[in-house]
Design a protein around this nucleic acid. Structure first.
Lengths: 224, 224
DNA sequence: CGAATAGTGTCTTTAAGACACTATTGA
DNA sequence: TCAATAGTGTCTTAAAGACACTATTCG
């Protein structure tokens, strides 16, 4: 196997698939496309596609996201999730898919794509092994909220502590004590920075607005 | 990109590369092979090779490990680390490498492979982007010891609490309070199970021997 | 015996959780 | 005014860290 024969390597196709998550109408939603051609024609699938020969994997992922959504959606976070390459995952040929996890603003999707609440998406019958990829994406997201500041990536540029708490509550599907959450966030250096602005949203005392702080890691972590 | 043309996909080769770690002579060591053919002939590299068309990725990784070491080394843990596919990472052609992280017993390696202390390996000039892969492997290992019971995978079938502590100390390159570590391990349900045996190793009071408990996750985690 | 390592007790400090309380708005 | 949400204070509890102490072995 140390010997190299350029014509002997097995023929693989490499794709990227994206699990793009956002918060929308009180749900964690994922961006799905409807397949037009076989296999799995008509079924919902994660956006993705073949990697061009001269493209880096992460660049290819960015590019597919832009293509599927008509440039409307910008990822606020993009990371490699894992690689799925069982023989037979694509009935046509051997395809290895590098899956990426992205967080995005909840812009209206392009005509060919739609936001679907994750619970619903997982329950539905996605194309290929995309249900498995989506499972992994959701679990990765849940666990990364514990020990990173990535929850801010689901928030607008300026957000309240309650906005941030809502991210945790939706992703973890729990409810958190507002008082303790507030204190915890403020005690974690670099989690958020005060802007000096406040915002009033109907009822109640107006809330201060914050921006993401410089930190990426939470120590000690938040607990689910 | 929804349209499928079986002859139009870009030609990729897919390889697996393994970062196999063990504890040996008070060092965290990694299994390296010396490349026989260009590119990077003569340089040290992680073991690995092309994935056969009908093989699952994880199976291919297991198989490469066995092949490189003459079946002498058995992985006590194997997990996907990440996929490295920059165009140009292999000067010959477009190669996407799925990297695996493995832990193994410190058996003597086969003739074509050798154990190298990780610090030394990282400082040396490995083939391809294998230094980057090894960096990721070490960081993944360090972080997984915090919140999983994987440290037991570096221990023999029966081990003392001091053995387990040594794993943490070597991987994290710190020293831990023996008393507090002992109490912490015992307090974490499912981390270890008592065997009833004890072992005396030269000086000091003989230590009890334990086996891995059923748990995989530590909550609360250990801190570095 | 002393030196060395295993293992326990206990005190201090830190952080989480419960929850009462104050602050500031809209209706 | 009340209802609602933002934010603080404070007490209780759990767990980490420091470190004194006991337990059991070898030489």
């Amino acid at each position: 196997m140390e010997q190299y024969d350029p014509h002997a390597f097995p023929p693989f196709a490499v794709t990227v698939d994206l699990a793009v998550l956002t918060l929308r109408d009180g749900d964690v939603s994922v961006l799905l496309v409807q397949r037009k051609a076989p296999p799995f024609a008509g079924q919902l699938a994660l956006p993705g596609g073949f990697v061009a020969e001269d493209r880096d994997l992460a660049d290819a992922a960015q590019e597919k996201l832009a293509a599927k959504t008509g440039l409307a959606i910008t990822a606020t976070h993009l990371e490699q999730l894992g690689t799925f390459g069982s023989p037979g995952r694509d009935p046509r040929m051997r395809v290895v898919s590098v899956a990426y996890l992205a967080f995005a603003d909840a812009e209206p999707p392009g005509s060919s794509a739609s936001w679907v609440p994750v619970e619903e998406a997982i329950a539905s019958d996605l194309a290929f092994d995309h249900s498995q990829i989506l499972d992994a994406a959701l679990e990765r997201t849940r666990s990364k909220l514990e020990y990173t500041t990535l929850a801010t990536r689901f928030c607008p540029a300026e957000f309240t502590i309650a906005d941030l708490r809502t991210v945790y509550e939706l992703v973890w599907n729990t409810s958190l004590d507002p008082a303790n959450f507030h204190r915890k966030v403020m005690a974690t250096k670099g989690f958020v920075t005060e802007t000096g602005h406040t915002v009033s949203r109907g009822k109640g005392r107006p809330a201060r607005l914050y921006r993401p702080g410089g930190a990426e890691v939470l120590s000690p972590p938040l607990t689910r």
